[in-house]
């Protein structure tokens, strides 16, 4: 439609495309548009197939009853909603620690002037790529020393340690876009750094803080590594671990398989909610944090 309109009034198209979406203009022909739709639909079908197959499987025997029974008669002694709550509780610790560390460090690296600032920042980024599995042994030891097995803090802390380099990068990148003149003005008015931090930097970084918080909760929801080593109490099972708990608790009969697939579908629900309600925060957070400039 918009293509046709563009053909009739080329001037208007150029203006419109500049204003709202320059990419809109690149689809010039009807054939191209159809090809794009066709390819997208084929890919979408491929991408949706696994989840679709889980839904089909889950309804094969006993139908919707499989979903109801997940809540009325918990599989493997752990109610499925409890696994969400456990992930959420870990997420609270994870987000709290990451925000405390990243926002303060982000302020220091973007707004304070001290010798070795860039070097220090590079040193922080050095650990951006460390996979959790590489510090598994020492984290196990640290958790042992601190007596933090089977506690949300025990899992939230190493998750935060892995996220912090990213969080600092995100907050520092965002902080650099906050105008220095505001801070200088506050400085001239006699406000100290702590007041500037709390009354100017934190409120102005709110978008970045929200993005980072959403990401922390997503990553806690996804994390399998730390809970699997640091939680031994079955009642603390998180959503990412629940997959194996349910798989172990259920047999290989058709009824059990249907129930198992129902549990997989239900476990995918939080991710769907995140995408539906929080996609903007996720995309903004991940992409502002991805580059160093």
């Amino acid at each position: 439609m918009s293509v046709a309109r563009g053909r009739v009034r080329p001037n208007r198209r150029t203006r419109r495309s500049r204003a709202d979406n320059p990419m809109r203009g690149i689809v010039t022909g009807r054939a191209d548009r159809i090809t794009i739709y066709a390819l997208l639909i084929v890919l979408a079908v491929l991408f949706a197939f696994p989840l679709y197959s889980a839904i089909v499987k889950s309804l094969e025997v006993n139908g919707i009853q499989n979903y109801i029974s997940l809540f009325t008669d918990p599989v493997g002694d752990i109610p499925i909603w409890q696994t969400y709550l456990n992930s959420l509780a870990v997420g609270v610790v994870h987000a709290t620690v990451v925000l405390t560390v990243s926002v303060t460090a982000g302020y220091a690296f973007s707004k304070l002037h001290f010798r070795g600032r860039e070097l220090g920042f590079s040193a922080v980024l050095l650990f951006l790529a460390v996979p959790g599995i590489a510090i598994l042994v020492p984290v196990y030891r640290i958790t042992q020393e601190l007596g933090l097995f089977n506690s949300y803090v025990g899992v939230g802390l190493p998750e935060a340690a892995i996220t912090i380099p990213f969080g600092v990068l995100l907050m520092r990148n965002y902080g650099r876009n906050i105008s220095d003149s505001l801070i200088e003005a506050a400085n001239l008015d006699g406000a100290g750094h702590f007041r500037i931090f709390w009354n100017i930097f934190v409120p102005l970084s709110r978008p970045a803080i929200v993005n980072l918080t959403v990401l922390c909760f997503i990553w806690s929801l996804q994390d399998f590594l730390w809970p699997s080593f640091l939680f031994t109490n079955p009642s603390l099972t998180t959503a990412a671990q629940a997959v194996s708990t349910f798989s172990n608790a259920l047999g290989r009969g058709a009824g059990d398989l249907a129930r198992f697939n129902a549990s997989l579908v239900v476990l995918a629900v939080p991710a769907v909610l995140f995408v539906v309600f929080g996609l903007r925060f996720i995309v903004n957070g991940l992409t502002t944090g991805s580059t160093k400039d």
């Binding site: 979406n21 889980a54 929801l221 996804q222 990412a240 194996s244 991710a271």
Partner: peptide
């Protein structure tokens, strides 16, 4: 998706969902 196709949000949901689910869940499925 940037060229202004219809149902953009729906397509994003389908393509981005796998990356936001727990990996353990995706692999199990």
């Amino acid at each position: 998706l940037a060229t202004g196709v219809r149902a953009k949000r729906f397509f994003y949901l389908i393509f981005l969902l796998p990356a936001l689910m727990p990996l353990s869940l995706v692999a199990t499925i």
